[in-house]
């Protein structure tokens, strides 16, 4: 992966930053992007984000992050805004969503899922006294969500190819039902596998390890 980056050393440096710091920066910057209303200011901010994306992830990393469906979705939203609210708002929507996408990839592309999980768990631990807050569940859920993004991207591509092979033209409506069905099926299996690997959704207690049983 690193050979696709324009600056492998920069990528390595960003990768070594603490996950918690990167997540906090993501939250702050994303909030900033959502608050900026001026197209000009947003343009400058987006240019900076894009530059950072190019330097750290490289063009290949960026285009992989974007993916056809995501770009199409952002395009559709911008087009809708153009029709309803005019060109300036459309530009704002376009810049805002694409720089959010790049920012998110900057964090997830340089941070291990387990490190993100640990950071979330650590951040939420103090709030566990509140009802319905489970730091461990939130941490695993987020790590899984990140993993699923890549999986769903791959699945959509496979389904599209399978339909193309049967002479069907790709269309979102043809894709969505088999895609959802498959996501649900595989999610069920993954949930079982997580159970089977003794995940309990609570801070694991250190338990004495039992030696393998002997067989005659």
């Amino acid at each position: 992966m690193s050979r696709e980056a324009w600056s492998p050393s920069l990528r390595a440096a960003v990768s070594s930053w603490p996950a918690g710091l990167k997540l906090a920066a993501l939250v702050v910057l994303a909030t900033g992007l959502l608050l900026i209303q001026s197209a000009a200011v947003l343009g400058v901010a987006s240019a900076l984000v894009l530059l950072a994306g190019l330097l750290v992830l490289g063009p290949a990393g960026l285009s992989r992050a974007a993916g056809r469906w995501l770009v199409l979705t952002i395009g559709c939203l911008a087009l809708l805004t153009l029709l309803i609210e005019g060109p300036e708002r459309a530009l704002v929507v376009l810049l805002r969503l694409s720089s959010l996408l790049v920012l998110a990839e900057l964090v997830t592309g340089t941070t291990r899922a387990s490190a993100i999980q640990d950071a979330i768990v650590a951040a939420l631990r103090p709030f566990e006294r509140l009802p319905f807050v489970s730091a461990d569940k939130a941490g695993l859920a987020l790590a899984l969500a990140l993993r699923s993004l890549a999986l769903v991207r791959g699945m959509a591509e496979e389904l599209r190819e399978a339909q193309a092979a049967r002479g069907l033209r790709a269309s979102p409506s043809r894709l969505i039902i088999p895609l959802v069905a498959r996501i649900l099926r595989e999610a069920t299996e993954t949930a079982e596998a997580i159970d089977a690997r003794s995940w309990t959704g609570e801070k694991a207690r250190s338990s004495p390890k039992e030696p393998p049983r002997d067989h005659p």
């Binding site: 291990r112 387990s114 790590a143 993993r147 595989e186 993954t190 596998a193 690997r197 250190s206």
Partner: peptide
């Protein structure tokens, strides 16, 4: 399970192996 895609939880090999161990409290 039959399909490893659905039972490997984490995106990097060593962090997935570590997942089960963390569940045991390591």
């Amino acid at each position: 399970f039959q399909n490893p895609d659905n039972q490997i939880v984490f995106p990097i090999v060593e962090e997935d192996i570590a997942f089960g161990l963390r569940n045991l409290g390591r």
